[in-house]
């Protein structure tokens, strides 16, 4: 039981830490994080706790992916020329195909 408790606390710390750079702000993220944990404070079935930790780990992966993508996109926007948007590119293709 205490081993699970330690893992839940570790999960909370990790999410709290990641929330510091959340795009909507830590002030947005932290209260919601706390609420999500408090909502399940009475859960006592080890299997259920395990499942909830699993969900927490999934959220961590999602946030990591979000940060990575955000950084990648902003760098791409500032340093690389944007490729033509799909609709525009298709139009260009069509015009070229019809050209004599």
């Amino acid at each position: 039981m205490s081993a699970l408790r330690a893992r839940v606390i570790e999960l909370y710390k990790q999410l709290y830490y990641m929330g510091k750079e959340y795009p909507a702000g830590a002030e947005w993220f932290h209260p919601r994080l706390k609420k999500a944990f408090l909502k399940n404070k009475d859960v006592s079935d080890p299997k259920e706790i395990e499942a909830l930790i699993g969900r927490g780990q999934f959220v961590i992966k999602e946030i990591e992916a979000l940060y990575m993508l955000r950084k990648y996109r902003s760098l791409k926007k500032s340093y690389y020329e944007e490729p033509l948007p799909l609709a525009e590119a298709n139009l260009v293709k069509k015009i070229n195909a019809n050209a004599p």
Binding site: M18, Y67, M68, Y72, K76, Y79
Partner: peptide, 13 residues
């Protein structure tokens, strides 16, 4: 360059 890889996130532990 940008497309070499996707850097991992430095986790708290």
């Amino acid at each position: 360059d940008l497309r070499l890889n996707q850097p991992r996130y430095a986790t708290l532990p």
